[in-house]
C-alpha cells in the first residue's frame, strides 16, 4: 500500500521538530477601511456601489437591460427568480445578473467571502455574466488574517473569496476581463 510506505518514508526522512510560530497581530494600515476596500475592488477590475435605497431600485436603474435575473436576498428584486441547490446549471448560464449576499469583505485585496448557503448553488457564482454581492459596511475587515479569525470555512462547506470579475492574461500578458466566469462583478455596500 502506498499509504504505509509513504508514512514510513516520512518518519525516516523528516527533519527534527521545528516549532510552529504564532501569527502576530499586525498594525492596521492607515486610512479608512472602507476606502481601502473600494480601491482594492476597483484594482481587481470590480465595482463598488454605495447603496442607499433598496437593491431592486438599483437593478432597475443600473441594469435596465438585464434579461435573466436571479437573486438570493432577503428583499425582493422585481423580475428576479430565486435559484436553489436544485437549479439546473443551464438556467444559471443564461443569467445576465445574479445577486446574493456576501459575508465579509477584505480591505487589503477587495475580496468578498461567499458561502454556498448564500449562493444557493455553487455554480451560481461562476456562470452568470454579472455577479452582484451585497455586503454590509460593518462586514469589512483589514486583512486576510482577520477574515480567517471571523470565518468558519469548514462549516461553510464550500466558500470562496471573490476579488473582481473572472480574468486572464494568458495571451501575451494582455489583461482580458471575463475569462470563463462572470465578466462583471459589483459589490453593493450598504
Amino acid at each position: 500500500m502506498s499509504r504505509e510506505r509513504i508514512l514510513k518514508r516520512i518518519q525516516r526522512n523528516r527533519p527534527p521538530a521545528v516549532a510552529l510560530p504564532d501569527v502576530p497581530a499586525f498594525a492596521p494600515p492607515s486610512g479608512a477601511r472602507r476606502a481601502r476596500f473600494i480601491a482594492a475592488v476597483e484594482e481587481a477590475a470590480g465595482a463598488v456601489v454605495p447603496l442607499e435605497g433598496d437593491v431592486g431600485a438599483w437593478v432597475q436603474r443600473a441594469c435596465p437591460d438585464a434579461r435573466g435575473v436571479a437573486a438570493r436576498l432577503d428583499e425582493a428584486v422585481p423580475g428576479a427568480w430565486r435559484p436553489g441547490p436544485d437549479t439546473p446549471p443551464e438556467a444559471l448560464a443564461g443569467l445576465d445578473l445574479f445577486l446574493c449576499k456576501g459575508t465579509l469583505g477584505v480591505a487589503e485585496n477587495g475580496a468578498v467571502w461567499v458561502g454556498e448557503a448564500a449562493a444557493g448553488r455553487r455554480a451560481a457564482l461562476f456562470l452568470p455574466e454579472h455577479v452582484v454581492l451585497v455586503l454590509p459596511c460593518t462586514a469589512l475587515v483589514d486583512t486576510m488574517h482577520e477574515a480567517y479569525r471571523r470565518l468558519d470555512v469548514r462549516a461553510a462547506g464550500f466558500g470562496v473569496f471573490i476579488a473582481g470579475p473572472s480574468k486572464t492574461a494568458d495571451i501575451a500578458q494582455a489583461l482580458v476581463i471575463g475569462a470563463h466566469g462572470p465578466r462583471r462583478l459589483t459589490v453593493l455596500l450598504r
Binding site: 482594492a40 485585496n109 477587495g110 464550500f158 473569496f161
Partner: peptide
C-alpha cells in the same frame, strides 16, 4: 494567500480562492 498572488502576478489575491470542505 497574502503572499501567493502578490508574488506570482502582483495581484493582491487571485480572483477566486475556493475553499472545499464538503
Amino acid at each position: 494567500l497574502r503572499l501567493l498572488a502578490r508574488s506570482a502576478t502582483g495581484q493582491a489575491l487571485t480572483v477566486y480562492t475556493s475553499h472545499f470542505h464538503r
